[in-house]
Amino acid sequence: MDIQTIGLIASIITIIMFISPVDQIRDIIKDKTSHGVSPIIYGMMIINGICWVIYGFGINNSFIIIPNAVGAVLGTATLFIIYKYRSHKE
């Protein structure tokens, strides 16, 4: 297996991993509460994704840029939903 194939497989797996919060977003919207959901992990997901994207551009590697950009965007969307449905008493 060549290195390009490994990069493609790793990118696909990373995107699948970053898509996993979509179920949580759906539950938050359905229940209209983000009680019990920590925003810290999603903040770190955004920071991590941005750092990897910058690094990916630095070495001109789309296998790093694309999945981590997806992760940063989905982390941002999740964080937005968490705060939108955060109750005032939490």
Rank of each mutant, 00 (worst) to 15 (best):
Gly56Ser: 07
Ile81Thr: 12
Cys51Leu: 07
Ser38Leu: 09
Glu90Asp: 11
Gln4Trp: 14
Ile64Trp: 08
Ala10Phe: 03
Ile41Leu: 14
Gly58His: 08
Phe63Ile: 04
Thr5His: 03
Asp27Lys: 15
Thr5Arg: 08
Gln4Asp: 15
Ile6Tyr: 13
Val37Pro: 00
Gly56Cys: 12
Ile47Val: 14
Val73Cys: 07
Ser20Trp: 02
Gln24Trp: 04
Ile50Pro: 02
Val37Asp: 09
Tyr83Ile: 14
Lys32Tyr: 05
Phe80Glu: 04
Ile25Thr: 00
Gln24Asp: 01
Ile50Asn: 03
Ala77Arg: 06
Thr76Leu: 04
Ile3Arg: 11
Ile19Met: 15
Ser38Glu: 05
Leu8Ala: 13
Asn61Trp: 13
Thr76Ile: 05
Asp23Glu: 14
Ile16Arg: 09
Ile12Pro: 00
Ile47Asn: 09
Pro21Tyr: 03
Asp27Val: 13
His35Ile: 11
Val70Glu: 04
Phe63Tyr: 13
Thr76His: 03
Ser62Cys: 05
Pro39His: 01
Gly75Asp: 03
Gln4Cys: 12
Ser38Ala: 15
Ser38Cys: 08
Ser34Thr: 09
Met17Ser: 14
Ala69Tyr: 04
His88Ala: 02
Ile12Met: 13
Ser34Tyr: 02
Ile41Ser: 12
Ile19Gln: 14
Ile28Cys: 01
Ile46Asn: 02
Thr76Pro: 10
Ser34Leu: 03
Gly43Trp: 06
Leu8Pro: 15
Ala72Ser: 10
Ser11Glu: 07
Ala69Gln: 05
Gly75Tyr: 08
Gln24Pro: 00
Ser34Phe: 08
Val22Ala: 12
Ser34Arg: 08
Ile82Asp: 06
Ile15His: 06
Met44Ile: 09
Ser87Asp: 15
Gly49Asp: 08
Phe57Met: 05
Gly43His: 01
Ile65Arg: 03
Gly36Asn: 04
Ser20Tyr: 02
Met45Arg: 07
Ser62Gln: 13
Arg26Val: 10
Ser11Thr: 14
Ile15Phe: 08
Met45Phe: 11
Ile50Gly: 04
Met1Lys: 10
Val22Lys: 02
Leu8Thr: 10
Val37Asn: 02
Ile40Asn: 05
Lys84Leu: 15
Ile19Leu: 15
Lys32Phe: 09
Val22His: 00
Met45Gln: 11
Ile15Gln: 11
Thr33Lys: 07
Ile54Gln: 07
Tyr55Cys: 00
Ile25Tyr: 03
Asn61Gln: 06
Gly71Ser: 00
Pro39Leu: 00
Gly7Gln: 05
Ile25Met: 09
Ile12Gln: 10
Gly71Asn: 03
Trp52Cys: 01
Asn61Phe: 00
Ile47Phe: 06
Ile15Pro: 02
Thr76Tyr: 09
Met44Ser: 15
Lys84Arg: 12
Gly71Trp: 01
Ser38Asp: 14
Gly58Glu: 13
Pro67Phe: 11
Gly7Ser: 05
Phe18Leu: 09
Ala69Ile: 13
Phe80Asp: 06
Phe57Pro: 02
Gly49Met: 08
Val73Asn: 02
Ile12Leu: 12
Ile41Gln: 11
Ser34Gly: 07
Asp27His: 06
Phe63Val: 11
Val53Ile: 10
Ile59Asn: 15
Phe80Lys: 10
Val37Tyr: 06
Ile6Phe: 11
Gly36Pro: 07
Pro21Cys: 13
Leu74Gly: 06
Tyr55Phe: 08
Phe18Asn: 11
